[in-house]
Protein backbone atom coordinates (compact mmCIF):
# COMPACT_ATOMS: atom_id res chain seq x y z
CA UNK A 1 0.00 0.00 0.00
CA UNK A 2 1.59 3.25 -0.98
CA UNK A 3 0.70 6.60 0.39
CA UNK A 4 0.38 9.21 -2.29
CA UNK A 5 0.52 12.64 -0.73
CA UNK A 6 0.13 14.39 -4.06
CA UNK A 7 -3.64 14.26 -3.76
CA UNK A 8 -3.37 16.35 -0.59
CA UNK A 9 -1.02 18.85 -2.19
CA UNK A 10 -3.22 19.19 -5.26
CA UNK A 11 -6.34 19.86 -3.26
CA UNK A 12 -4.98 21.74 -0.31
CA UNK A 13 -6.87 24.93 -1.03
CA UNK A 14 -10.14 23.05 -1.23
CA UNK A 15 -9.41 21.33 2.06
CA UNK A 16 -8.16 24.51 3.68
CA UNK A 17 -11.47 26.13 2.84
CA UNK A 18 -13.11 23.26 4.67
CA UNK A 19 -10.96 23.94 7.71
CA UNK A 20 -11.96 27.59 7.58
CA UNK A 21 -15.65 26.76 7.43
CA UNK A 22 -15.23 24.30 10.30
CA UNK A 23 -13.56 26.92 12.44
CA UNK A 24 -16.05 29.65 11.61
CA UNK A 25 -19.05 27.40 12.14
CA UNK A 26 -17.61 26.17 15.44
CA UNK A 27 -16.87 29.62 16.79
CA UNK A 28 -20.14 31.20 15.71
CA UNK A 29 -22.37 28.34 16.87
CA UNK A 30 -20.30 28.12 20.04
CA UNK A 31 -20.95 31.78 20.74
CA UNK A 32 -24.65 31.72 19.89
CA UNK A 33 -25.28 28.55 21.89
CA UNK A 34 -23.41 30.03 24.86
CA UNK A 35 -25.48 33.21 24.74
CA UNK A 36 -28.70 31.28 24.29
CA UNK A 37 -27.71 28.80 27.01
CA UNK A 38 -27.00 31.63 29.44
CA UNK A 39 -30.38 33.22 28.74
CA UNK A 40 -32.19 29.91 29.06
CA UNK A 41 -30.47 29.02 32.33
CA UNK A 42 -31.26 32.41 33.85
CA UNK A 43 -34.85 32.10 32.68
CA UNK A 44 -35.05 28.72 34.33
CA UNK A 45 -33.50 29.84 37.61
CA UNK A 46 -34.94 33.32 37.99
CA UNK A 47 -37.72 33.59 35.45
CA UNK A 48 -41.47 33.05 35.75
CA UNK A 49 -42.55 29.71 37.20
CA UNK A 50 -44.63 28.63 34.22
CA UNK A 51 -41.61 28.86 31.95
CA UNK A 52 -39.61 26.27 33.86
CA UNK A 53 -41.29 23.07 32.65
CA UNK A 54 -40.99 24.34 29.09
CA UNK A 55 -37.27 24.91 29.50
CA UNK A 56 -36.84 21.49 31.11
CA UNK A 57 -38.74 19.89 28.22
CA UNK A 58 -36.52 21.65 25.69
CA UNK A 59 -33.28 20.69 27.43
CA UNK A 60 -34.29 17.05 27.87
CA UNK A 61 -35.49 16.83 24.27
CA UNK A 62 -32.11 17.90 22.98
CA UNK A 63 -30.57 15.14 25.09
CA UNK A 64 -32.89 12.66 23.40
CA UNK A 65 -32.55 13.58 19.73
CA UNK A 66 -29.32 13.09 17.71
CA UNK A 67 -27.59 16.12 16.16
CA UNK A 68 -27.92 14.51 12.75
CA UNK A 69 -31.69 14.48 13.07
CA UNK A 70 -31.80 18.11 14.22
CA UNK A 71 -29.59 19.27 11.33
CA UNK A 72 -31.45 17.27 8.70
CA UNK A 73 -34.84 18.45 9.96
CA UNK A 74 -33.68 22.08 10.10
CA UNK A 75 -32.37 22.02 6.54
CA UNK A 76 -35.05 19.97 4.80
CA UNK A 77 -38.21 20.26 6.88
CA UNK A 78 -38.06 23.72 8.43
CA UNK A 79 -38.19 25.49 5.05
CA UNK A 80 -41.40 23.62 4.29
CA UNK A 81 -42.95 24.79 7.54
CA UNK A 82 -41.76 28.40 7.36
CA UNK A 83 -41.68 28.88 3.61
CA UNK A 84 -38.17 30.35 3.89
CA UNK A 85 -35.22 28.76 2.18
CA UNK A 86 -31.87 28.83 3.90
CA UNK A 87 -28.32 27.97 2.99
CA UNK A 88 -26.78 24.80 4.40
CA UNK A 89 -24.50 26.93 6.57
CA UNK A 90 -27.42 28.83 8.07
CA UNK A 91 -29.33 25.62 8.68
CA UNK A 92 -26.28 24.12 10.36
CA UNK A 93 -25.85 27.23 12.49
CA UNK A 94 -29.48 27.19 13.60
CA UNK A 95 -29.54 23.44 14.19
CA UNK A 96 -26.27 23.39 16.12
CA UNK A 97 -27.27 26.38 18.23
CA UNK A 98 -30.63 24.89 19.14
CA UNK A 99 -29.02 21.59 20.05
CA UNK A 100 -25.97 22.89 21.91
CA UNK A 101 -27.77 25.67 23.77
CA UNK A 102 -29.55 22.98 25.79
CA UNK A 103 -26.22 21.61 26.98
CA UNK A 104 -24.84 25.08 27.56
CA UNK A 105 -27.92 25.90 29.65
CA UNK A 106 -27.29 22.88 31.85
CA UNK A 107 -23.65 23.82 32.31
CA UNK A 108 -24.59 27.39 33.27
CA UNK A 109 -27.27 26.18 35.65
CA UNK A 110 -24.90 23.74 37.34
CA UNK A 111 -22.26 26.45 37.54
CA UNK A 112 -24.59 28.95 39.17
CA UNK A 113 -25.93 26.38 41.61
CA UNK A 114 -22.39 25.41 42.56
CA UNK A 115 -21.58 28.85 43.94
CA UNK A 116 -21.80 28.70 47.72
CA UNK A 117 -25.03 30.12 49.15
CA UNK A 118 -22.89 32.04 51.61
CA UNK A 119 -21.69 34.22 48.75
CA UNK A 120 -25.26 35.23 47.99
CA UNK A 121 -25.89 35.88 51.70
CA UNK A 122 -22.84 38.11 51.93
CA UNK A 123 -23.88 40.07 48.87
CA UNK A 124 -27.44 40.42 50.13
CA UNK A 125 -26.13 41.53 53.52
CA UNK A 126 -24.36 44.41 51.78
CA UNK A 127 -27.73 45.49 50.43
CA UNK A 128 -27.48 44.29 46.83
CA UNK A 129 -30.58 43.57 44.77
CA UNK A 130 -31.05 40.04 43.35
CA UNK A 131 -30.03 41.27 39.91
CA UNK A 132 -26.87 42.84 41.32
CA UNK A 133 -26.06 39.68 43.27
CA UNK A 134 -26.32 37.60 40.09
CA UNK A 135 -24.49 40.02 37.85
CA UNK A 136 -21.60 41.02 40.10
CA UNK A 137 -21.07 38.12 42.48
CA UNK A 138 -22.62 34.82 41.39
CA UNK A 139 -22.19 34.83 37.61
CA UNK A 140 -18.51 35.83 37.57
CA UNK A 141 -17.63 32.98 39.91
CA UNK A 142 -19.95 30.57 38.13
CA UNK A 143 -18.38 31.36 34.76
CA UNK A 144 -14.94 30.45 36.09
CA UNK A 145 -16.26 27.21 37.54
CA UNK A 146 -17.90 26.31 34.25
CA UNK A 147 -14.75 26.66 32.18
CA UNK A 148 -13.78 22.97 32.04
CA UNK A 149 -17.31 21.97 31.06
CA UNK A 150 -17.35 24.66 28.40
CA UNK A 151 -14.05 23.40 27.07
CA UNK A 152 -15.69 20.01 26.65
CA UNK A 153 -18.66 21.59 24.96
CA UNK A 154 -16.43 23.48 22.52
CA UNK A 155 -14.72 20.21 21.66
CA UNK A 156 -18.11 18.61 21.06
CA UNK A 157 -19.16 21.60 18.96
CA UNK A 158 -16.19 21.19 16.64
CA UNK A 159 -16.90 17.48 16.27
CA UNK A 160 -20.58 18.14 15.60
CA UNK A 161 -19.73 20.51 12.74
CA UNK A 162 -18.49 17.44 10.90
CA UNK A 163 -22.04 16.10 10.96
CA UNK A 164 -23.10 19.17 8.99
CA UNK A 165 -21.45 17.46 6.02
CA UNK A 166 -24.68 15.50 5.74
CA UNK A 167 -26.51 18.67 4.72
CA UNK A 168 -23.74 19.69 2.33
CA UNK A 169 -22.10 22.39 4.40
CA UNK A 170 -18.62 22.79 2.84
CA UNK A 171 -16.77 22.16 6.09
CA UNK A 172 -13.74 19.90 6.37
CA UNK A 173 -15.60 16.58 6.49
CA UNK A 174 -17.60 17.41 3.37
CA UNK A 175 -14.59 18.73 1.48
CA UNK A 176 -12.66 15.57 2.38
CA UNK A 177 -15.51 13.39 1.14
CA UNK A 178 -15.54 15.27 -2.15
CA UNK A 179 -11.79 14.99 -2.70
CA UNK A 180 -11.77 11.34 -1.65
CA UNK A 181 -14.63 10.59 -4.03
CA UNK A 182 -13.07 12.37 -6.98
CA UNK A 183 -9.54 11.06 -6.50
CA UNK A 184 -10.39 7.52 -5.44
CA UNK A 185 -7.81 7.92 -2.67
CA UNK A 186 -9.86 7.77 0.51
CA UNK A 187 -7.02 6.53 2.69
CA UNK A 188 -4.76 9.52 2.17
CA UNK A 189 -7.57 12.06 2.26
CA UNK A 190 -9.42 10.73 5.29
CA UNK A 191 -6.22 10.10 7.21
CA UNK A 192 -5.17 13.66 6.49
CA UNK A 193 -8.59 14.87 7.62
CA UNK A 194 -8.19 12.91 10.85
CA UNK A 195 -4.85 14.58 11.41
CA UNK A 196 -6.37 18.02 10.84
CA UNK A 197 -9.24 17.40 13.21
CA UNK A 198 -6.91 16.05 15.86
CA UNK A 199 -4.70 19.12 15.57
CA UNK A 200 -7.78 21.29 15.92
CA UNK A 201 -9.32 19.43 18.83
CA UNK A 202 -6.41 18.31 20.98
CA UNK A 203 -5.27 21.83 21.93
CA UNK A 204 -8.82 22.94 22.69
CA UNK A 205 -9.39 20.88 25.81
CA UNK A 206 -5.74 21.11 26.81
CA UNK A 207 -5.85 24.87 26.36
CA UNK A 208 -9.03 25.28 28.35
CA UNK A 209 -7.57 23.11 31.12
CA UNK A 210 -4.45 25.27 31.21
CA UNK A 211 -6.47 28.48 31.37
CA UNK A 212 -8.69 26.99 34.05
CA UNK A 213 -5.76 26.03 36.23
CA UNK A 214 -4.59 29.63 36.25
CA UNK A 215 -7.96 31.17 37.07
CA UNK A 216 -9.56 28.44 39.19
CA UNK A 217 -8.92 30.38 42.39
CA UNK A 218 -11.17 33.16 41.13
CA UNK A 219 -14.11 30.79 41.29
CA UNK A 220 -13.33 29.04 44.54
CA UNK A 221 -15.29 30.56 47.41
Amino acid sequence: MDFDLAVIADNWRFLAYGVLVTIVLSIVSGATSLAAGLAIALLRLRGPRWLRPIVVLYVDSMRAVPVLVVLVWTFFALPIVTGLTMSPFTAALIGLTVHLAAYAAEIVRAGIESVRPGQTRAAVALGMSPAQVMRRIVLPQALVRMLPAFGSLLSITIKDTAIASVIAVPELMRQSETVAGQSFQPIEVFTFAMLLYFVLLFPVTRGVDAVYRRVAHLGRS
Binding site: R116, Q119, A123, L126, G127, P130, Q141, V144, G219, S221
Partner: peptide, 24 residues
Amino acid sequence: DERGLRTMRQRMGMVFQNFELFPH
Protein backbone atom coordinates in the same frame (compact mmCIF):
# COMPACT_ATOMS: atom_id res chain seq x y z
CA ASP B 1 -40.55 43.98 51.47
CA GLU B 2 -37.24 43.31 49.73
CA ARG B 3 -36.63 46.89 48.74
CA GLY B 4 -37.20 48.17 52.28
CA LEU B 5 -34.95 45.46 53.68
CA ARG B 6 -32.23 46.35 51.20
CA THR B 7 -32.26 49.93 52.39
CA MET B 8 -32.01 48.85 56.02
CA ARG B 9 -29.20 46.41 55.21
CA GLN B 10 -27.12 49.33 53.97
CA ARG B 11 -26.98 50.52 57.55
CA MET B 12 -26.11 47.13 59.02
CA GLY B 13 -22.79 45.42 58.48
CA MET B 14 -22.53 41.64 58.67
CA VAL B 15 -19.42 39.51 59.09
CA PHE B 16 -19.75 35.77 58.41
CA GLN B 17 -18.08 32.76 59.96
CA ASN B 18 -16.77 31.67 56.56
CA PHE B 19 -15.66 35.20 55.60
CA GLU B 20 -17.48 34.91 52.25
CA LEU B 21 -15.09 37.17 50.41
CA PHE B 22 -15.79 37.32 46.69
CA PRO B 23 -13.03 35.15 45.17
CA HIS B 24 -13.03 36.77 41.76
